[in-house]
Structure formats: structure tokens, C-alpha cells
Nucleic acid binder design. Structure first.
Lengths: 213, 213
DNA sequence: CGCTAATTTGATCAGACTCAAGTGAAGTGG
DNA sequence: CCACTTCACTTGAGTCTGATCAAATTAGCG
């Protein structure tokens, strides 16, 4: 597993959602909610597939999960990596529009979609769901800017910074996912990802800032 | 204003959101809600800027609105075009992370963010907000696949099909936005957009299907 | 230790970008 | 009503970033 040394420039603390919402992050908090069922997944195991009946919403307890879409000819776009505390699998329809797989061994908690929002008790969970959705949206929107308008080097740099901001691991970020995963997340090829990394190592990043708007 | 002839292959009816939600689309329905204030915008007029205090959430009544992000060096990414019925300006924090401008003369309705969700009355609006957020998310996720993994031609084709699906105008889609806007939405340059259009006219589309997964 | 898979590195290619010029439509003003 | 400007778009030529193809290196793993 590779680690990249960079100094975190942007720590984007997530703002509160308009409609109230107390917020707990990174700390997968104490009381594991009632309705959820915990599930362990081996590395590369599929959690759900595109088109599956969307019966559950998931939260990552530990590990990393990727959600991705496929084009019929095999091209893949990983829309996000989900770390501990992140929610994924939120759907409007009754099918998942994504496939979800474990990037590394991980533990997730599955919430049945039926008893959400209504059951008073887990109004908090519904709340959390809305928050999760909002976060996903913000992520996606920033990612569109990256995909549409940034160079390979900028993509890699942004990716590293973002990851650094999400995992508070001192000043070393480790990359649990493969080059292929990174490539498919950033809209590049593995070769370009690899070259960008070496390029960054050599030049730009000599324990330097990577300034990004 | 140019119009492109294509046959709609995919009409993606939007599915219901998990937590109930009655759904009205395209018909900006009868009773214009109480709390909102209607506002007219001339073509290219700014509705709000990136960084502005996010006091309102908007719904398009007529016309088209674009929301975009800028990189410090001027590169722009238009994250979405919003048509009649669409909601935009939903924020978690207290600032807009986008700039919103009128693509053509349009009329929008602004809802003050304070009195949302709480006031019982507009619980329906809060509902609609969640729906709007979900739709934006779905859009964004599909758009990431486009930006990250599709060729110029595929991007244009997908864009046309999507627009065709959203505006039920027979089999002719018109493009109210400039080439620059389209380019900045699809992660291309205006020249490539232009070339792709002529390319499509000549070849692929002879009142044909554009098949896309 | 030998095998396989992942990553890096190299060489070439191509799709999209850049720069530049040409076309056309919409106004403007004489 | 017609020159003249302007602005959006199209088209062309050359360049460059990132993709593709291929080989070498490294890392895991039984």
C-alpha cells in the first residue's frame, strides 16, 4: 500500500444542512442504531449491483467502499469512495443505479428502507440520510468540476488533498485503492495516474503546498 | 436558435423518492405557493453568485437557468441547466457554492430559507426540496459518467437526448444555450462542440437512433 | 522460490485543444 | 435600405495532453 506525503491545505469542514441537523462525522458514534444490521465484506466483494432492488441504505463503519457505474462496453466511472461514517446506497427509485464494492475488507451497517422516516424513533436516521444525500451532492458537484475542467496532474492533486482532508491521519495519506480505481474515479488511465504520481513525487511536491481553488 | 432533430430513445421518468413524496413535474402547478416571491430575470442576468449568502432556494417557473462553478483561472463548469419546474440553489452551508445565471429571459420563484420545513404549512415545500436535491444528485451522478468516460460525440449525443427527454417538444429539441455554455457543461471547447454537431448532422443522425447505455 | 498480478516506464498514436481565419446573422446608424 | 460593426458560430491547420500498446519492474503470495 502506497502512501503519499502532502500537507493538507484545505480541510473542508462540512457545513450544516439548512433544515436543522446535528452533525457527527468521522466518529462512527457510540450507539449503533437499532434497526441496522451489521455486515462484513471482504476486499472486492460486491455489496450490491447496479439494478438490484434497493432495499437497504448503508453506512460504512470501517474500511472503504466504492460506488460505480458501468458503460456497456466496460468503461467505468467510480462516483465516490466512501469512508467510515459515510452513507451510500441512497436511492429515489426501487433499484440501485450503482454498483457498490468493498475496496478493502470492511464493515457496513444496512438499514432497511421501509422503516425509515416514519417510525419516529429513527427520525434521526432520516435526518442523517438527508445529510448524507446533501454531502453526496456536494461531492458530486465538486467532482464534476474536476472531471470536466482539470488536467491530469490537477486531478491527482485534488484527489490527494481531498483524501487527506477526509482521513485525519497526520500528514501522510494512504491510498487503499488500486490505480485502476483511482483512474476510474478521475477519468484517466492507470498509466496516466502512475505517471502523475511519479511526476508529483519528483517535482511539484517537495513537501510543498498544492494550491487549488 | 438552433434545433436538433433526434428521436428520443430514453425517456427517463423520474422515480419516486423513498420517503413518500407526491410528484408533479414539468407542470409548474396551479397554486403558486404562499411564501415564495416571483422574480423575472433578463438573459444572462445573474441570479446569485458563488459565495453569496444563500438566503433563498429557487424554482424555475419559465426559461432556463444555468448554475456553474469557476476555477480561479477562468475555467468554468456548468453543473446543470435548470428548466421550468426545476429547483436550484439548495445549499447546506450559508453560502452558494455556485453561480446562477439566466440562460434566456426567465421567471423564477424565490423561497426564503428560514421558514422552511418548520412552518408545517410548507412541509410540502420541504418535501419538494428533498426531491429536488435527489434529482440534482441523480443528474450529477450521471453527468460524472459522461464527463469522465465519454467521447466528445457521446457527450453531445447524451446531452441532446437528455434535453429531449426533459422538454416534451415533439421530436425537435431546441438549444436555448450558447455553444460556450454547452462546452462548459460537457467539458469540451466550443470548437469541439461545433464540430460534433456538424458531425452528427451529417453522419450518425439521419433521423436515427442514438443508442446509449 | 517461482508464479501471478499490479505498477511503472517507454514509445507511439489520436482525440481534443489551440490558434487562426472565414462565414453568417443581428443590430446600428447613415 | 444598405454599408458596417459585432458577435456567435463554423471550419481549417497544427500541436499537445493523455490514451494505447508494449515491455520492464516490483510486489504479493502460495
Amino acid at each position: 500500500m502506497q502512501t503519499a506525503l502532502i500537507t493538507k491545505a484545505t480541510s473542508s469542514a462540512l457545513p450544516l444542512f439548512a433544515l436543522e441537523a446535528p452533525q457527527v462525522r468521522r466518529t462512527v458514534d457510540a450507539a449503533v442504531p437499532a434497526v441496522g444490521s451489521v455486515r462484513s465484506c471482504a476486499k472486492d466483494q460486491e455489496i450490491f449491483a447496479e439494478g438490484d432492488r434497493a432495499a437497504f441504505v448503508y453506512k460504512v463503519l470501517s474500511g472503504v467502499v466504492r460506488t460505480s457505474k458501468l458503460l456497456s462496453d466496460g468503461r467505468r466511472q467510480i462516483d465516490a469512495f466512501h469512508l467510515a461514517g459515510d452513507i451510500f446506497g441512497i436511492e429515489a427509485g426501487d433499484e440501485y443505479r450503482f454498483c457498490a464494492e468493498a475496496v478493502v475488507d470492511c464493515v457496513v451497517i444496512a438499514y432497511r428502507r421501509n422503516n425509515l422516516g416514519t417510525t419516529g424513533n429513527d427520525a434521526q436516521l432520516a435526518q442523517e440520510l438527508t445529510m448524507g444525500m446533501m454531502r453526496s451532492l456536494i461531492r458530486a458537484q465538486n467532482h464534476m468540476l474536476l472531471l470536466g475542467r482539470k488536467s491530469a496532474l490537477e486531478k491527482i492533486a485534488t484527489f490527494l488533498l481531498d483524501l487527506a482532508g477526509r482521513t485525519a491521519d497526520g500528514d501522510a495519506v494512504d491510498l487503499p485503492m488500486s490505480r485502476t480505481d483511482i483512474a476510474d474515479h478521475l477519468g484517466l488511465t492507470i498509466e496516466t495516474v502512475s505517471r502523475s504520481f511519479t511526476h508529483l513525487e519528483h517535482r511539484t511536491v517537495k513537501r510543498t503546498h498544492i494550491r487549488l481553488p
